[in-house]
Design a protein around this nucleic acid. Structure first.
Lengths: 229, 229
DNA sequence: TCAAAAGTGTTCACCGTACACCCATGG
DNA sequence: CCATGGGTGTACGGTGAACACTTTTGA
C-alpha cells in the first residue's frame, strides 16, 4: 500500500555549486552572471533545481557538467541553506556543494555561454542571496579537508612542481609555508611520483615534475593511514 | 517584481533528528516506534516535515521539543539525504540533524507518547529507510567534533565527576583512555571548575564534582584557543 | 657574472603516551 | 582490615617548527 503525506508543504530544492579552481597563483571560484530573474545581471554561484528523478549528487553533477563540460568532478555536499526569505521569488531551500576542478580543463565555450568568470577568493564580488555565506562555509570546509587528506591534487594538472603544490596549499590555507618543511611533509606521505622531467618555464634551473600516485594513495587510505598535513 | 520559478519540481522536505544521550555508561540514541504509515510500528529517528514558515533549524528545534520537552538543545545540521526512493510513500528529501541532550532531563510523558526508547549505539535495532546511514554519519561527526571542541558537556548533568566525563569520551570515541592522561588533558584545557563537593554514590572515598566553566570556555573560543583532545 | 628559483638537513622545544602506586572510606 | 574506586607525576620518543646556504643556468 502506498501512503502519502497529504497535508505537508512542498518546497523547491535548489543545488548551488561552489567551484574551486587554481591558476598557479590563487585559489579561485567560478561565478556566473545570472541571466534570469530575480537578481538578473548579478553575480551568483552556478545552480539549478533538483529534478524528480535525481538525487542531490546527481543534480550537482548535472549542474557542474553544464558549466564546466567536465564529467567526473570531485565534489562534496556542504550544507543546506533554508532561511525563509533567502530567495525573494519563492520559497527555496538550497543545498550547497563544493567542487574542485583543474581550471585549465573546463570548456571555455560553456563559460562564455553562462557569462562565467573566475574570481580570486580574496577578491569576490557582491553575490546574490546567501551565496557569500555558502562560499565562506566552503572555504572553511576546504581548509579542514586539506589538513586531513591530500585533496588538493584535484586542483592541479596531472604533472606539477613542488612549488605549485606548495602555492596551492598556501592559497587554500591563506598563509605562507616553509619550503623545506612542506617538502619534508609531502615526501613523508609518500604518495607522489617524481618524474624524470623538468618544468623549464618557472626558472632557469628548471624544477622536477611530480605525479600523484593514486594507487599508493588508495592503498594507504585502506590501511587507515593518517594524512595529516 | 516577484518572479516565480514556474516549471520546477517541488518536493517534501523532512527533518530527522539523531538524538544522543548518555546514561553514565553508554552513548545512546533516542528512537521512536513509528505510529503512522509507511513502515508503521518500526523503529525510526524522530522526524517531521519542514513547514512553510520555518527554516531548517527552527523545524529541527520544533521536532526536538516535541519529543523531549527541552527548549534549548545543542544541535547541528548533519547532511541532506536524497535518494529518489528513500521513502517509498513519496519523494522526500531529509535533512538530518544531530542533537545532544542530558538524558535525565527530558520529559518522560512525551517519550511514552511517541513510544520512544533509548538504544545504545552499539546495539541499534533495524531502522526504516536510510536512518541507519544517518546515524553512522552522525557518530562520525560527533567523534570529530569532540576531538576539536569540548562538546561533550552537553550530554552530562550540570555537576559531574571526572570519571563520568572520561566514560563519556570513551563511549563517544569507542575506545578506552588512560585515566591520568585524560585528566591531564582536560585540566590543561582549563575550562572546568572543581567544586567543594563530592559524589558519594560511585565509591566509598567519593569523587569530586566539576562544573563546566562556560565563561572561561567562551573566552578561550574568542581567543582562538584550540581544544584538541 | 649575476639574478632567480630549486633543492637540501639539522636542531630544539613541546606534546602525546605509556606507565604504577598510594589514598580514603564504608562496610 | 580490606575491597573499591579516586587521585596523582614522570620519563621518553616522536613530531612540528624554525632556520640558511649551495646549485643551476639563461640572459
Amino acid at each position: 500500500m502506498v501512503h502519502k503525506y497529504q497535508l505537508e508543504d512542498k518546497v523547491l530544492l535548489a543545488v548551488d555549486c561552489i567551484i574551486f579552481g587554481f591558476d598557479e597563483e590563487d585559489l579561485k571560484i567560478l561565478l556566473i552572471k545570472r541571466n534570469f530573474e530575480p537578481e538578473k545581471g548579478k553575480w551568483s554561484l552556478m545552480g539549478g533545481f533538483l529534478k524528480r528523478e535525481e538525487n542531490l549528487n546527481i543534480a550537482a553533477n548535472r549542474i557542474l557538467l553544464q558549466l564546466t563540460g567536465i564529467e567526473k568532478i570531485y565534489m562534496e555536499q556542504l550544507y543546506a541553506f533554508s532561511e525563509v526569505d533567502r530567495d525573494p521569488a519563492e520559497r527555496t531551500i538550497s543545498v550547497a556543494y563544493f567542487a574542485l576542478i583543474n581550471s585549465k580543463k573546463h570548456d571555455k565555450a560553456l563559460i562564455d555561454k553562462h557569462s562565467a568568470q573566475w574570481f580570486s577568493v580574496t577578491e569576490l564580488p557582491e553575490l546574490i542571496f546567501d551565496h557569500s555565506e555558502m562560499i565562506t562555509k566552503a572555504i572553511r570546509r576546504l581548509r579542514y579537508k586539506t589538513s586531513k587528506k591530500p585533496i588538493g591534487f584535484e586542483l592541479l594538472p596531472e604533472k606539477f612542481t613542488m612549488r605549485q603544490l606548495q602555492k596551492l596549499y598556501e592559497s587554500i590555507l591563506g598563509e605562507k609555508l616553509d619550503k623545506r618543511n612542506f617538502i619534508n611533509k609531502i615526501n613523508a606521505l609518500d604518495i607522489l611520483i617524481k618524474l624524470n622531467e623538468k618544468d623549464m618555464n618557472s626558472s632557469r634551473k628548471g624544477s622536477f615534475l611530480y605525479k600523484f600516485d593514486s594507487k599508493k594513495y588508495s592503498q594507504k587510505v585502506e590501511e587507515g593511514f593518517s594524512f595529516k598535513l
